[in-house]
Design a protein around this nucleic acid. Sequence first.
DNA 1: GAGGAAATGATAACGAGGCGCATTCGCGCG
DNA 2: CGCGCGAATGCGCCTCGTTATCATTTCCTC
Lengths: 146, 146
Amino acid sequence: MSEHWLERAHAALRAAGLRSGGGRELVLEELAAAGCLRSAQELERTLADQGKPVSRATVYRTLELLHELALVQRVDTGNGVAHFEPADHSGEHHHHTVCDRCGRVLTFADEELEAAIDRISDRLPFAVHRHDVVLRGACADCAGRA
Amino acid sequence: MSEHWLERAHAALRAAGLRSGGGRELVLEELAAAGCLRSAQELERTLADQGKPVSRATVYRTLELLHELALVQRVDTGNGVAHFEPADHSGEHHHHTVCDRCGRVLTFADEELEAAIDRISDRLPFAVHRHDVVLRGACADCAGRA
DNA sequence: GAGGAAATGATAACGAGGCGCATTCGCGCG
DNA sequence: CGCGCGAATGCGCCTCGTTATCATTTCCTC
């Protein structure tokens, strides 16, 4: 879905009357290529390592912009570092597990969980726009040698 | 349950061979009195306003200690600020809604959600120790005048 | 092309949180 | 009742992620 997301992102940015600068484009491509959770600094470093240095300010600005346009999902894994990933509009939705030992982040999807959350949002006096579920514990590798 | 929690906290701290200093005690009381989510700085400021200034280091150390002893639950509401609240050991478990407009945090509980998460932890190659569910959106007050 | 607005880059500022060390204080023991 | 050990506290400094500032460059439009 990467190319698809990239197209959608371009369209959304154009629709918002924004221009396509070099730095933003690189961040977009990198996000699309990664697909999974990436922190702002991982993005900055990866791009720098590829010989395409992008200013830190541009990376953060781009991520903030994409977040406002709902093109990326922001996930706070609880270490004080924000992570981002391309938002999936295909109806498929997934969440994350964070390993307390090695910090590894895995993804999972569960219809039952989604259904439960949907029902909750009907029941509460609260308009749920987004929901983040973060499970913390030990991943398969770390659980063995706890 | 506040007094109850306070007692339990005292017992746990004593059991760990720790002493009861003035600063820690104040943080404990404030947490118990608040009951709900509080950030480290809110605690620090509240105590200072009450004429009981506690060093920032002490507040953080106390919270870290309580977290290790599973006496407080740490919840990251996604603004880069960690929030804490007394852990409820009565089996009752609740989660939070965060309003994107006013930042208000409400709590809710849902058995179906808990059950879904339990089943997920059985299914995944991941030992789930804790889980945080944060719903973001607009609270009843803000939804009206969005 | 020329103009103007948006985008970018470099850097400083900011805020949460952690660390180290000197000092204080609680608590058990003689 | 004092003594002393070690935990607890406070203070200041530092790190690090993130955001704001501002001059400069770049991209669209006409």
